[in-house]
Simulated assay, not measured.
Amino acid sequence: MNVRYVLFFLLSASIFTSCLGDTGNNPDPLELATVYVSNEGNFSDASGSITSYDPESGSSLQSAFEEANGRPLAGIIQSVKIRGERLYIVLNEANKIEVTEVGTLESIGTIEMSTTPTDFELINEEVGYVSNLYDGSVTVVNVQDFEETDTAIAVGSQPRSMVRLGNMVYVANSGSGSANTITVVNASSDTVMDTIEVGAGPAEIALDVSNRLWVVCSGKIAYDENWERDPANDVPGSVYILDGGSATVIDSIQTGGHPSDIALNNEGAEAYLIDEAVSVVDMNTYEVKEARFIDRTFSSIEYMPTEGRIYVGDSRGYSQNGQALIYELSGTAVDSFTVGIAPRIFHFIVN
């Protein structure tokens, strides 16, 4: 999360910070900001989409990728990363990565994958990493030729979110709640350099401006033989905070529920965590200072510095369009707009 570039920046639940560009302490005016919402879509219809929203006018464009390219994404969005002037859209079902220009969403190329991709991370101008859900690996891809290479790095069970910090890439091994590790890959040699134990089911990683990794561990929801909820055997979730430079655990927060996403307000030293409600975490003390800041749950969350507001996504299931809601830091809802099916990630672009 929290990536700053000269022309663009991205803040998103699963997305990390590069040391390139400014720190965001002097944000651009609101009228220069654009919001992209990545919508997962319905699996049976492969209906992943991107909604474009203008905060100044309040206007939105559904299926913005389709409008720009005359074709749908035709897949289920697992993650989206903005790196430089490129946007990388990771889709399973179609098993591909669509690469577009950030400002126009016009297609630059497509990386066809032989695996089921879940996340992407850019290593340098030629190389990218792709985490693969079902074979416990990270595949090396050529982002100039838009090709999958023969190099695969064994990590952990069901890897999902990835974050690069210098030559280190942190990979969250979710294991559908049965795994509890972060694999640290040396991007210079494509080898595993360390494994860190965290809470059960790590799935999302956010990186703050102090190079701390905020790892959202969802735990595991238990079911009985009739596939009914079995709370007595649930494995509760947590948030682990890691030192990105030394690859060590700083602290952890036991939430008691099953957290799913986090947004970082670096300037205000607050993190906003989706669990049974939206809670506020003090980023200095690692304590929950307001357990039910917004007394409902959502599918995604992000903080927009240019507005000083929180954006959340309400999926409303997989059979109808979702909704994005905008909250002040007081917890008051101030606006909303329609998005696609199952809103997953917010991206704030400064032109």
Results as ranks from 00 to 15, higher is better:
4 R>W: 12
13 A>D: 15
17 T>N: 14
20 L>T: 14
25 N>A: 15
29 P>C: 11
29 P>W: 10
33 A>R: 03
33 A>S: 08
39 N>H: 03
42 N>H: 13
46 A>Q: 11
49 S>I: 05
59 S>T: 12
63 S>D: 14
64 A>S: 11
67 E>H: 15
70 G>N: 06
76 I>W: 02
79 S>C: 08
79 S>K: 12
83 R>V: 14
84 G>C: 13
89 I>D: 00
92 N>L: 07
97 I>V: 10
102 V>L: 08
105 L>R: 00
107 S>Y: 07
110 T>A: 12
110 T>Y: 08
117 P>K: 06
119 D>C: 04
120 F>W: 07
121 E>H: 06
124 N>Y: 07
127 V>G: 03
130 V>W: 01
131 S>V: 03
133 L>M: 11
136 G>Y: 05
137 S>K: 13
138 V>N: 01
139 T>C: 10
145 D>P: 03
145 D>L: 14
148 E>L: 05
149 T>K: 04
149 T>W: 07
151 T>Q: 09
157 S>W: 09
164 R>Q: 11
166 G>V: 02
174 S>W: 04
179 A>C: 08
179 A>F: 04
186 N>A: 11
191 T>M: 13
192 V>L: 09
202 P>M: 04
203 A>P: 01
204 E>M: 08
209 V>Y: 08
212 R>F: 04
218 S>D: 12
219 G>M: 10
219 G>C: 10
221 I>H: 06
226 N>P: 03
227 W>A: 13
230 D>L: 11
232 A>V: 07
237 G>F: 04
238 S>V: 08
239 V>C: 10
248 T>F: 04
253 I>T: 01
256 G>L: 07
260 S>N: 10
261 D>T: 09
263 A>M: 13
264 L>W: 15
268 G>R: 15
275 D>V: 06
281 V>M: 11
284 N>H: 10
284 N>T: 12
284 N>V: 12
290 E>F: 14
294 I>E: 00
294 I>P: 00
296 R>V: 10
297 T>V: 12
298 F>E: 00
300 S>C: 14
303 Y>V: 02
303 Y>L: 07
304 M>F: 15
308 G>R: 08
317 G>T: 01
317 G>V: 00
320 Q>A: 15
328 E>Y: 08
328 E>C: 06
331 G>L: 05
333 A>M: 15
336 S>K: 09
343 P>Y: 00
345 I>A: 13
